[in-house]
């Protein structure tokens, strides 16, 4: 996106700051629309597979750790709050506060990834990673494997987006540190925030779809 990082000049193709800000904002929203459909392919696959194999999905769900999933949801929701507050601080020109809140957001993001890593490790140990090492007793074993294929693809793609998000926030934090922003110019903070919230929203859907399938369905 157009992180034209200099607080002073407006990039040459624009008439004024306002145009530049709105262009950046729209660019990010359009990118998020693309992202919806990028994840959308996986959600469609999930929809079809769950429709085809409801029992297998319910059985597979019993292997999911709801507690860790719920904690991770809470962590991510909190990170969204700190992100929103960080943008607000940037709007008000409070560099220090904005810096601290962005760092907090990153820390929550890393915590999320840490918990995710623990979950992944356990799944590997239990032989639930699809492929030759997959172990699952029962008639629906192959379809349970399909569930875990989707689980790893969806959460893996989501985690990748988290990593990218943390990378972006690192840059933003450094820019705040160098005093690049002001109440007139904070668009990169806001636009990065949009991305962060989007990644949060993806998780808001992944959590019930992957962790909360009711066993009696």
């Amino acid at each position: 996106m157009s992180d034209h990082a200099h607080p002073t000049p407006v990039a040459h193709q624009f008439d004024d700051r306002e145009q530049q800000t709105e262009v950046g904002r729209l660019g990010m929203w359009l990118f998020l629309a693309t992202e919806i459909l990028f994840f959308g392919g996986l959600f469609t696959a999930y929809l079809v597979m769950r429709w085809k194999w409801p029992e297998a999905f319910a059985v597979a769900n019993s292997k999911m750790d709801v507690t860790l999933g719920a904690i991770n949801t809470a962590v991510l929701l909190t990170s969204s709050l700190t992100m929103a507050l960080g943008v607000r601080a940037a709007q008000l020109g409070r560099g220090k506060g904005s810096f601290a809140l962005i760092i907090a957001t990153m820390v929550f993001g890393l915590a999320f990834l840490g918990i995710k890593a623990v979950e992944y490790a356990r799944k590997f140990q239990e032989g639930l990673f699809p492929g030759p090492g997959f172990v699952f007793e029962g008639a629906t074993g192959r379809q349970v494997e399909t569930f875990f294929s989707l689980y790893f693809m969806m959460t893996g793609l989501h985690a990748l987006h988290m990593v990218v998000g943390i990378g972006i926030l690192t840059v933003i934090a450094a820019m705040i540190r160098r005093g690049r922003f002001s109440p007139d110019y904070y668009a990169p903070v806001e636009i990065s925030g949009l991305y962060w919230h989007f990644v949060d929203i993806i998780w808001i859907f992944l959590f019930p779809l992957l962790y909360l399938i009711h066993p009696h369905l």
């Binding site: 459909l37 990028f38 959308g40 492929g131 399909t146 294929s149 989707l150 693809m153």
Partner: peptide, 28 residues
């Protein structure tokens, strides 16, 4: 983006031998 994720799924399925398109293991 839908094409991108779809070819990614194909590559993933081919590389790991798992997935959701192969009818032999319940894919479609």
């Amino acid at each position: 983006p839908v094409l991108a994720i779809t070819v990614a799924m194909v590559a993933f399925e081919r590389a790991t031998g798992i997935g959701i398109f192969n009818p032999a293991i319940g894919g479609d």
